[in-house]
Nucleic acid binder design. Sequence first.
DNA 1: CTGAAAGCGCTTACAG
DNA 2: CTGAAAGCGCTTACAG
Lengths: 378, 378
Amino acid sequence: MSGKRLHAVLPRLTREGGAVADDGERTRRPPTIVDVAARAGVSPATVSRSLRGAGKVSPATRRRVLEAARALNYVTSPQASGLVTGRTGTVAVVVPFASRWYFATALAAVTDGLREAGLGVLLYHLGGAAHRDAFFEELPLARRVDAVITVSLWLDDTHKSRLQELELPIVALGARIPGLPQVAIDDEAAARTATTYLLNLGHERIAYIAGAHDDIELGFTSLGDRLGGYVAAMEEAGCSVDEDLVLSGVAGLHGGDAAMTELVSGTARPTAVLAEYDELAFGALWALRRAGIRVPADISVVGIDDHEMAAPLDLTTVRQPVADLGHAAATLILDVLRGDTRPEAATTTFPTQLIVRGSTAPPSRSRKRERATSAPAG
Amino acid sequence: MSGKRLHAVLPRLTREGGAVADDGERTRRPPTIVDVAARAGVSPATVSRSLRGAGKVSPATRRRVLEAARALNYVTSPQASGLVTGRTGTVAVVVPFASRWYFATALAAVTDGLREAGLGVLLYHLGGAAHRDAFFEELPLARRVDAVITVSLWLDDTHKSRLQELELPIVALGARIPGLPQVAIDDEAAARTATTYLLNLGHERIAYIAGAHDDIELGFTSLGDRLGGYVAAMEEAGCSVDEDLVLSGVAGLHGGDAAMTELVSGTARPTAVLAEYDELAFGALWALRRAGIRVPADISVVGIDDHEMAAPLDLTTVRQPVADLGHAAATLILDVLRGDTRPEAATTTFPTQLIVRGSTAPPSRSRKRERATSAPAG
DNA sequence: CTGAAAGCGCTTACAG
DNA sequence: CTGAAAGCGCTTACAG
């Protein structure tokens, strides 16, 4: 609000209404409800009722109003109507990285879902840690939206309560935030499935690559859930988790590249890798190719997402239905806004599915042992 | 406005202001400028001036107002202020496919650029042809935004004039729309560069894969520009354009896959392919791998974009600085809104750059001929 | 079924 | 430098 906002700098828009003609058509100023009322020969109140289909209006009157509105190209001012109704017709969608596949896909689905109800989407792009802090500090969405959807945003208690101060309905998409209604997959189960699959193939030295999320600690986020699923599956199988095989670096493609490079240059190379999400896996595949290490002969790679590029890259992965999550989040917000659903009761978990492709195979060195194990005893 | 909009269905929000206490803090209702004025012991007008840093206010008064505003957690209502200033503090960004890399990247950059000026982004996601028509029919952004940025949107005259009826500043990002200020690359030159590079390698049978854009005809769009660059380069080199080698199908990855599959099953296979944009090229590479055709030994592939995945996939491509385009579009809109720039004068063209990677090589069969040609005469 | 009036929360000339 | 008043364009009780 302070600082050099454009708002404060802009010259006042010309509103050369000038002498408004009898029907208001000779002026530059967009027609108002009064203009429509005049043309239809009714009061503004009746125009309002007719246009919204609210209250009792005789069909004939309504028709006349609609005609006049059309003729004048009238559009209701959301600012004016919002001022009195207290609604904005807009939902904030908060995403950390708008350009990444997961977020972009979710955003598109949310937007489509909300549009069907006539609601618009105000996009808040956090980007890095600096922007995120500024966002929670300034809360630029205050008084601008009717509800908030966060997309895979990991909120600590401070951030969460800041957001809740807005007293707006909030839905968390793709992240487990205690106390908020959410739409997500079971992240732990997804990672557990992937890990168990690798274990069943005979792998024991399975690495885990996480994409760092700024300064947020792992462990209480949905990414922590995935890590937890990996650890649990490993331990249940009697495989100890080698801390040198759990890496967390930069996010995205380059993070996966860097982490994999580090792994293959280490002393005890893993035979398989689980990436927290597919883009990390793509980076890992890239690093392996450059290092001349064969996939899956030398190392197996698994991701989570089923990113659009997973199939072309022949990546085994755990599919999550991102667009469905987005639609569900939109629907949930709509229900809450309508009062059909109490937010507390509203948490949806979507199923995931292991998609086996060519990036995974039994470990080459342990093949013998694996056969021996699976051969009938005696 | 008609139809079953949520807007019309929503129950009126509770505004249990109840008895407002002397300082307005005992109520649920968010504090208004009047509350701040009361607490600071000044008039609302002075609060308004203090908060916006406009007009003359004594430093002491201003400080008191700021304190009161902070204490009450006051946030100016954009609806109320917008109603009188005529501004919304919001820009519409219209994208055909929000989930695709190019659009998501541009959107993120635009959003970041506008945020610095305190402007928000209202996202309009067109999706398919049906939504696009509805969008231009209903113009849901009317009276909701101060300006419009279209991202790689190809507008015919009808759509363009519909948009212009809004009498809002418009900037076209990534698409040449006559009469609108734009921020883009030289699409024809980009395609020409790629094609010439292939020609110089010795290719003559060069195919062109376009990603269909609904029912929009090629030829007057920026994609038409790319096709034009390809055709021009071919003809200048004395290579006739074989119509069977120019395909236009579905957009994106699957479009490239389908087109390439069609090409390799044809009678006269090309030795090289130029894809209109990288995602098509990814699909083409995928199809070639499945068909057992080697890249670049059997077929060379070139794209346009330098998509994030181009490097991992070793795709030769023509890079365009998508994020820079987005930032530039934001800056341009800000200039126009400030009145610093006349829209007509504002068109920026960004440079592109050929990035040679492993997906291109001289054609294997023509190597001999090529040598013969380039050998000194006599 | 319809209208007159009040009010939503601001900003802006206009006076002082 | 500050305030009282009007007005931005709507919607909503309240009367009729």
